[in-house]
Computed example of a mutant assay.
Amino acid sequence: MIRIFSILVGLFFTAALAWSLVIDTVQLGKDGLPKNAAHEFGKAHDLKPLKLASDGPFGKFDQAQLQRGFAVYQGVCASCHSLSQVSYRSLAALGYEDAELKAIAAKATINAKDPLTGEMKDRPGMPSDKFPAVVYGGVGSPPDLSLITKARHGGASYVYSLLTGYEATQPADLIKHFPDSKTGKDMHYNPYFANLNIAMAPPLASDGLVTYSDGTVASKDQMAKDVAAFLVWTAEPELNQRHQTGLWWILFLVFATTLGYMAYRNIWAEKKGH
């Protein structure tokens, strides 16, 4: 009797939970998603398309583009954003020679322990060092960009869209229906940012902010594409090797599958005949 009662109680609670779930699902379907400024006017899930050489299972990094992207990072982004997970010697994958790596690293000031005295002292950077953290004097702390394309929905497309998505004025309907979303002082309207208003001023405000060594015209759009490609590399520098390894494993599995099928046919052919 107690067992039957326990079963009935369990069935009652299960039915109540299922009914509540059905009611909530139906109600959500009628009401739709909550209406807010980002939902109505944001473009965080409608990013600008961006095609890079590294895209797809057989993609490979374009070294020339990565060098251009690094130039944009150095010339535009490095004053506020760190690359704390990247070492200078890793830039060899971009095609830089040892002498160039030493020159690039030497421009940085690294606070490290003196091996002779044990005291912390500033010294020029070395290829074995990682990019130092940026000391930012403004309000808030700009994010480290080492893994930004992994940390944001859309990856490189998000970076590209954000950099090229600043708008001088907000839509009139946005101010009318969502007055709390009005861009405040020291803020900038960007529909690709999560809450539409971002403290970072347009970093690529004009063409020609950097000079490309390969002669490519440094337009705002080109710089945005190049630095997005560079940040894909910082987040996944082993991508080329991973793609190559994956290809070899696919070929091995195809070969092993074919060999196994031929062995199966050879071993069982006579037995199936009987």
Rank of each mutant, 00 (worst) to 15 (best):
G42D: 06
G42E: 06
A44V: 10
H45T: 11
D46Q: 12
K48S: 03
S54E: 08
D55T: 01
P57M: 12
K60I: 13
K60D: 09
F61D: 05
D62Y: 00
Q63H: 10
A64Y: 02
A64D: 13
A64I: 11
R68W: 01
G69R: 05
G69W: 08
F70K: 10
A71P: 08
Y73P: 02
Y73N: 08
Q74F: 00
Q74D: 14
Q74W: 05
V76P: 09
V76T: 02
V76S: 07
S79Q: 14
S79W: 07
C80R: 02
S82N: 03
S82I: 04
S82V: 08
L83Y: 07
Q85T: 05
Y88H: 15
R89K: 15
L94E: 12
E97A: 14
E97N: 11
D98K: 12
A99F: 06
L101M: 05
A103R: 15
A105T: 09
A105R: 09
K107C: 09
K107L: 13
A108T: 01
T109I: 10
T109Y: 02
N111Q: 12
A112T: 09
P115C: 07
L116F: 10
T117V: 04
T117L: 01
E119K: 15
K121L: 11
D122E: 13
P124V: 08
M126F: 14
S128E: 10
K130D: 02
K130A: 12
F131K: 03
P132D: 05
A133H: 08
A133T: 14
V134F: 05
V135A: 07
V135D: 03
Y136C: 00
G137Y: 04
G137K: 10
G138S: 00
G138L: 07
V139S: 03
V139F: 06
V139L: 13
V139R: 13
P142A: 00
